[in-house]
Simulated scan of single mutants.
Amino acid sequence: MTELGPVAWPPAPIRTERLVLRASEARDRPAFVELLTSPEVNTYLGGARPREDVEGELPAVPEQWPGSFVVELDGGMIGQVLLRRHDRHRPAAVGKVDLGYLFLPRAWGSGYAAEACKAALDWVDDALGEPVVLATQTANVASMRLAARLGFAEVERFRAWDADQWLGLRPAASQLVKNS
């Protein structure tokens, strides 16, 4: 993965109706440990990592790089939204911004992922004006539904990491206006 491009980072916090998307802080470290070691969160991502490994490797302020948003609810981290640019992967994704997200199980089922991802996609539209890709396992039904809700359309299906995968593309907002 490579840098997002010519954007100032971190941006001002992004506020939605219920959430704040912001840069990582030291106080988020326990939630990052929980995200990376949760079997539920990592079901479709190759499995949870051992807590000792994560705690030993994670810096004091985790995930502090362009494109990594902490998702905060009522002052505490509930998830992460990731924006990265592909420099390898599927040919249809190379050079495009990729959307990823992780949420703690206690935040599932309340629409927080949709709300946070939409805010991040709006930020991409404003800051970069580019299309975005999203890849997920076809077995991850909730992620497939979210991708559709966010406006991603299937580009291809493929097999990787011993599982069937789905790659979707969401055009830039400027392309949506031109095509309507």
Rank of each mutant, 00 (worst) to 15 (best):
L104Y: 03
P39G: 07
Y101N: 01
V61D: 06
F32G: 04
V20Q: 13
A142Q: 05
L19R: 06
L45C: 10
R84W: 02
N140T: 11
P30W: 07
A127W: 11
R27L: 04
P66V: 12
P62D: 09
P13H: 10
A127Q: 14
V70L: 00
L21T: 07
L73M: 06
E130I: 06
A113C: 09
L21R: 04
F69S: 02
G67D: 04
L82D: 09
A119L: 04
A147G: 13
A60D: 14
V94Q: 14
L104K: 05
A60W: 03
D122P: 02
A139R: 15
Y112S: 04
V81F: 02
R15I: 03
L99H: 01
E115D: 07
P105Q: 13
R85I: 10
L58V: 09
A120T: 00
G47W: 08
T43M: 10
L36H: 15
A135C: 13
F32W: 15
A107T: 02
P66R: 12
L104S: 12
D98H: 12
D125G: 09
I14D: 03
A26H: 08
R90N: 02
V97N: 10
G79P: 07
A60S: 11
A92K: 06
D126W: 08
W108L: 06
L58K: 06
A116N: 02
G79F: 12
L58G: 03
L36D: 14
V81R: 07
A120R: 01
N42Y: 00
G56K: 01
A23M: 03
W108K: 05
D122R: 14
A148W: 00
G76V: 14
A107K: 01
G46R: 01
L99S: 02
R149I: 00
S24K: 03
D87V: 10
L128W: 09
T16D: 01
A142Y: 01
